[in-house]
Simulated assay, not measured.
Amino acid sequence: MRRYELVDRRDIRLVTDAPVPVPGPLEVLVRVRACTVCNRSDLAYYHYYGLRDHCAQGCYGHEIAGVVEAVGPGVTRVAPGRRVFVRTPLTTGYAEFALAREISVGALPDAVPFEQGAILQLLPLAVHATRGVRLGDRVAVLGQGPVGLMALRMAALRGASHITAVDLDDWRLQRSARFGADATRRVDGSTEQLLGTGAEFDVAIDAVGTPTTFNAGVGLVRQNGLVVMLGTHHVDTRVTVDLVAWERKGLRVHSSAEPLDAARAQALQTAERLARTKELFLPELLTHTYALEELPRAMEQLSASRALYPDAGPAPYDGPPRETLKVAIVP
């Protein structure tokens, strides 16, 4: 089969005779019909392979939709021929086939195209990240990339009374209202602009994953407010915080990760139910589609991003890639 492999920093190579994986116990083999590029993890692995240890440990190409080709012993939830999306695979989705654990596979409705279905990998993250949003909460979502927009949508569905979308880019902020934002705030990335008047919100969701956005969340929430770590700190892996400020406010914090299989399964089941509705606006998240052989071109397009550079350092870009959200790769 054809498969792309990340072999070095900014070096991906197409292998045309890779072996098709064989599913083991409780594993599923998926014929990949689309794999969307993760705007943070995949790009960080691509740019920091060899410079950050974790960039050689994650799965490069993990947002998959396709059809079950075969199942291993003990699999009962899915069967060959079933349309699925994958939360986290065992092998890359930039290939004709990918392997996944049964617990990471969700049912994909017939009405959802594969290119859009691959984006559903973000949904369990957004479900888990917004678990602390309560009816009537005032919520700020910092970052209006794909995962930020998905979190914004989930906060709206959970009953937030007012949601403010924050981003560097006007084009992305224009889409925030469709996803449920009541107000938008365009910023230049400085802490002062991010804070606004301060202490306005019950919940601040950092969907960017930089020291600036994470610490801005502390200033944005009220006493005993909640700060959510949804964006991944792949570039600035060590973040300094003011513990006195945290103590004085008595803040709560949680991440979007599902550390246990039970939490992962629950979030995936919620995502399956939501995928059957028309509440997610997946067509508006998908902006580009490329053939598998064009993956290098897609990586370059998405690489025009300020988020790929250390927060305190210089960068050739002042925001996200122009008019780009999700990019799908189709074998």
Rank of each mutant, 00 (worst) to 15 (best):
D167H: 05
L168K: 13
L168A: 15
D169H: 11
D169N: 15
D169E: 15
D170H: 13
W171V: 13
W171F: 15
R172N: 05
R172S: 09
R172F: 07
R172L: 10
L173T: 02
L173R: 03
L173H: 06
L173G: 01
L173V: 03
L173K: 04
Q174E: 15
Q174K: 15
Q174I: 02
S176V: 07
S176I: 04
S176N: 15
S176K: 06
A177Q: 10
A177K: 10
A177E: 10
A177Y: 02
A177T: 14
A177V: 14
R178K: 12
R178E: 14
R178T: 13
R178L: 14
G180L: 00
G180D: 02
G180R: 00
G180T: 00
A181I: 00
A181C: 04
D182Y: 00
D182R: 00
D182A: 04
D182G: 06
D182N: 06
A183Q: 07
A183Y: 01
A183F: 00
A183D: 12
T184G: 02
T184F: 00
R185S: 03
R185V: 02
R186Q: 15
R186A: 09
V187C: 06
V187T: 14
V187I: 15
V187Q: 04
V187K: 05
D188M: 06
D188P: 05
D188K: 12
G189F: 06
G189C: 12
G189N: 13
G189P: 13
G189Q: 11
G189H: 08
S190L: 10
S190W: 14
S190C: 12
T191E: 13
T191G: 03
T191V: 03
T191C: 01
T191Y: 10
E192L: 05
E192F: 04
Q193E: 15
Q193R: 10
Q193M: 09
L194W: 05
L194S: 09
L194T: 08
L194G: 09
L194E: 07
L195T: 12
L195P: 07
L195H: 11
L195Y: 05
G196C: 05
G196T: 03
G196V: 01
G196W: 05
T197K: 08
G198Y: 07
G198C: 09
G198W: 07
A199R: 13
A199G: 11
